[in-house]
């Protein structure tokens, strides 16, 4: 066991060294016990690191412009991902897409740990893994939305999805007004990581920084 040293036992939130040592120890044990190979671990890590919110944004922007694709994406996300060249590794949990509308607003969380649609949008942001978000969003989702500066009308149903098992959830945000003439590429720039978790909305076009 890793020595706790001078730590006070109240968790290791700021101790990156502790976590990397623990990860290295677990990796060594998994390989030694034949649970998986070093190659399996590196392949999966490479896959996750090769994906980022940009990939999710590209897929979801396509759903904004192609209603038939959107139907397929909502019915069977993994086949729809494949259509655009995104395959999931065999070891990936299932991923499904939920649509935000003017009647329902979905938000994703993993209260037990940090389950996230990594195989499509990469690693979760740090706040997603913190107890503050994980504990508050299920109890007071509208309070969390407020903290993120996201205004959701009282008449809209807020649906918090706790990814506690074999499915991961990717949120399809609503397409903002005033985006009719925009290309798919420009639309993808409106889709932020926060909007794909459901704590935010897609950006209004005037809020995208010119690049």
């Amino acid at each position: 066991m890793v020595e706790n040293g001078h730590h006070d036992g109240h968790g290791h939130g700021d101790n990156a060294e502790y976590y990397s040592l623990r990860a290295a120890a677990m990796q060594a044990l998994l390989i030694e016990k034949g649970v998986c190979t070093l190659d399996d671990i590196l392949t999966m890590a490479d896959k996750i690191d090769s994906r980022s919110p940009k990939d999710g944004a590209k897929i979801l922007a396509h759903a904004w412009v192609d209603p038939e694709y959107k139907k397929r994406l909502l019915a069977d996300a993994e086949s729809a991902f494949l259509e655009l060249g995104y395959d999931l590794p065999e070891t990936s949990p299932k991923i499904t897409v939920v649509e935000n509308t003017d009647e329902v607003h979905n938000m994703a969380v993993c209260t037990l740990c940090s389950c996230f649609p990594r195989a499509i949008i990469g690693r979760p942001p740090a706040w997603y893994k913190e107890l503050a978000y994980r504990s508050k969003v299920v109890v007071d989702p509208r309070g969390v939305l407020q903290e993120f500066g996201t205004a959701i009308d009282e008449a809209v149903q807020v649906r918090v999805i706790d990814s506690s098992a074999d499915y991961r959830y990717l949120v399809l945000p609503m397409r903002p007004a005033g985006t009719d003439g925009m290309s798919e590429e420009q639309l993808a720039e409106l889709i932020t990581q926060e909007s794909m978790i459901g704590v935010g909305l897609a950006l209004a076009p005037e809020n995208v920084r010119a690049s």
Partner: peptide
């Protein structure tokens, strides 16, 4: 949500969904 938390602050129509074996 109002069945999970008796003092739930949001709308009465709000839901929580979770995957259970």
């Amino acid at each position: 949500q109002t069945d999970l938390w008796h003092d739930y602050k949001g709308s009465a129509s709000d839901k929580l969904l979770i995957d259970i074996y």
